[in-house]
C-alpha cells in the first residue's frame, strides 16, 4: 500500500538537521543506559524491603522475576529466529 499513498513526505520538510536531536545524541543515550541500569538494580534491591510473595515457592526468591523475565525473552527471541528460518518468505510471496 505504500506505493499508492498521496502522502509522500515533503523533501523541504525532510531537511537534514545539522545538530542531531538531543534524544539521539550519544551522550544522551549513554545517560539513558545509566539511568535504566540504576532502575533495574533498584527493582531488585526493593525486594530487600518488600518481601516477595510466593505462590509456588520459587517465585518468592529475590530477583526471580528479573531472571525469569530476561530468560523468557531470550528464549522467545531465539525461538522466533528459528521459526523464521522455516517460515520466512519474501514480502511478495503471495503476489504472483
Amino acid at each position: 500500500m505504500s506505493e499508492q499513498s498521496p502522502h509522500q513526505p515533503d523533501p523541504e520538510l525532510a531537511a537534514h538537521d545539522e545538530q542531531p536531536h538531543w534524544l539521539v545524541r550519544p551522550s544522551t543515550i549513554r545517560l539513558l543506559w545509566v539511568v535504566f541500569v540504576a532502575i533495574l538494580a533498584g527493582t531488585v534491591a526493593a525486594q530487600l524491603f518488600v518481601k516477595p510473595h510466593a505462590s509456588f515457592g520459587i517465585d518468592g526468591w529475590m530477583g526471580f522475576a528479573a531472571v525469569f523475565g530476561f530468560l523468557s525473552c531470550a528464549v522467545m527471541v531465539v525461538a522466533a529466529k528459528l521459526v523464521g528460518f522455516v517460515l520466512k518468505r519474501g514480502e511478495d510471496h503471495y503476489e504472483h
Partner: peptide, 15 residues
C-alpha cells in the same frame, strides 16, 4: 506484586 511485575517487565526491556 508491583515489584514483581516491574522487575519482570523492565528486565524484558533490557533483553
Amino acid at each position: 506484586k508491583l515489584v514483581f511485575y516491574l522487575q519482570l517487565l523492565l528486565f524484558s526491556g533490557l533483553a
